[in-house]
Design a protein around this nucleic acid. Sequence first.
DNA 1: CTGAAAGCGCTTACAG
DNA 2: CTGAAAGCGCTTACAG
Lengths: 340, 340
Amino acid sequence: MTVEKVTSQDVARLAGVSQSAVSRVFTPGASVSPAMAKKVHAAAAELGYRPNVLARSLITGRSRIIGLVVAYLENQFYPVAIEHLSRALQAEGYHILIFMAENSESQVADVIQELMDYQVDGIIAASVAMTHDLSERCAAAGIPVVLFNRDQDGQSHSAVTSANTIGGAKVAEFLIAGGHRRIAHIAGWQGSSTGRDRQKGFLDALAAAGREPVAVIDGMYTRDGAADAARQMMAMPDPPDAIFVGNDHMAFAVMDVLRSELGLSVPGDVSIVGYDDVPLSAWPAFDLTTLRQPVNRMVAATVETILGKIQDRTLKPRKIEIDGPLILRGSARIPEGWAG
Amino acid sequence: MTVEKVTSQDVARLAGVSQSAVSRVFTPGASVSPAMAKKVHAAAAELGYRPNVLARSLITGRSRIIGLVVAYLENQFYPVAIEHLSRALQAEGYHILIFMAENSESQVADVIQELMDYQVDGIIAASVAMTHDLSERCAAAGIPVVLFNRDQDGQSHSAVTSANTIGGAKVAEFLIAGGHRRIAHIAGWQGSSTGRDRQKGFLDALAAAGREPVAVIDGMYTRDGAADAARQMMAMPDPPDAIFVGNDHMAFAVMDVLRSELGLSVPGDVSIVGYDDVPLSAWPAFDLTTLRQPVNRMVAATVETILGKIQDRTLKPRKIEIDGPLILRGSARIPEGWAG
DNA sequence: CTGAAAGCGCTTACAG
DNA sequence: CTGAAAGCGCTTACAG
């Protein structure tokens, strides 16, 4: 079992042409005569030659690799996003080098450093905290950074999110219109922009209607956090009759507590609304009413932003917010004549 | 915003040493005096130098990149596996270049080819079909291949699976012991080794007990396939009182049909047993009895196998089967005094 | 231990 | 259009 690396030299020799000619044949847009191309392709096919992408990257300064940093995959939103991101990038000739990181500053910093060692052309950080300093370092190194489903202060990075504040407000209006009297919120992690924005939009819209939440607890984007919050709320003397939960992943945990643990009915006793619209939400077992984050459009915007910046370094970082619809299902009372 | 690439030359100049010296300081195990190391580190820190991994790879012939090919991420088993795989490989200084592929031979062949262009040190194919020819090409190129959660004929690749035949048999014995009279099977995709092995183990064990399944339908590992199969089975004059479903992902769809669509009770009317034990299975909404695939051990075996082969090319490919336990939950009647 | 030199497999001006 | 040459940023024998 011989491990023979076939190089452009070998092909050149067999085809009886120069090594540069071989290189040109495999460089889109380079000028080669049809005769040359034919000879070279024949020799290449015979030897099974393909250009070494790494060697090419060393010269061109582009690796066609995008680094993706992601914290955890239990929330189905992320696998779905990764799948879309990966396919979209592949279609453009790019590939994803994936790094798992704890969502801590030092971990993320280490990971980004490793990513830079690989000479990635760009970095996508999905729901992961980046310090201001870190994103400036990337910018200084000419590596575009786009935050996916999270934003933070600073102008050195781009960010793509759904319109979280508006989304939170939509849920509030929907629950009010549904005639709910005691509305509560199990918030997304308040250390994240999505958690804060959804909560702000929700509470502001409530206030605009002269209403106040009966309870607000940070669910930390975890099942345990959400489940505990649900137990606390339902143990109140006057428990809520509607809960807006900061994402679907937590909403499932809340429904589990209400139905399996407390024997309550959803939406009979409590209406539940989530945020994301992951595939699971449509399954009959949950049938969750939720504010959809349009993954497809978020991914398209992310890919366009990062590739744009790679091709034209002078482009300014931009913040994109994409509006999503409320998806009506069976977990929350639907106001009569509701049209959104 | 200047994009300055700092190279070992720059560091050498600043430190007043040769470029090779700088290289040695960043090469673990190379011989350098403490004084030299200190000078170089100081200069490197000042300039923010880090070695270019791509240039290094060109010489060493190792990229420290592992290609991962995966078909779809809706089944939660895969995100979980990717997360574990990624973390385990990161801990060893390797990283994952991820490729999504349709599970078709030509698509997979294309993807593998691209992976080889990136000079990956090894390839992990998760539940994806590889032709014999393809895995031989990788072997010829000196790139170890390990199939994760799938196997097929041929000795040119390694494979890590759970003990699927034994697992299928365990489920059969459990359902028989539970006193079920009409046992059916919604099989995993029969084009896959896992689907075939689980079915074979299940049917053989049934036969060994003098029993026959009342129905066997291929669920294709999809929600739709499984849901249709469930509808067909429940429409039989004498519907099953127990169904072994080829994986958890399908089992959820089956439970949705039984409970939400047909108004049946699980396990009151029908016992359901799945295969995988994804995190979702433990959620109260499903509470699914299932044969666990020990992801941690499967991942550990995969990492060990592929890194072993990278370090020692003479190692033979190997097939590893890892036994998993039946996890008892509420979706299937538990035989009295059952101890496994 | 250290430096000068060759070379990994390519791309890309530069002549012709 | 084509070839000879330089060079991308490193590692690694080879002398000293």
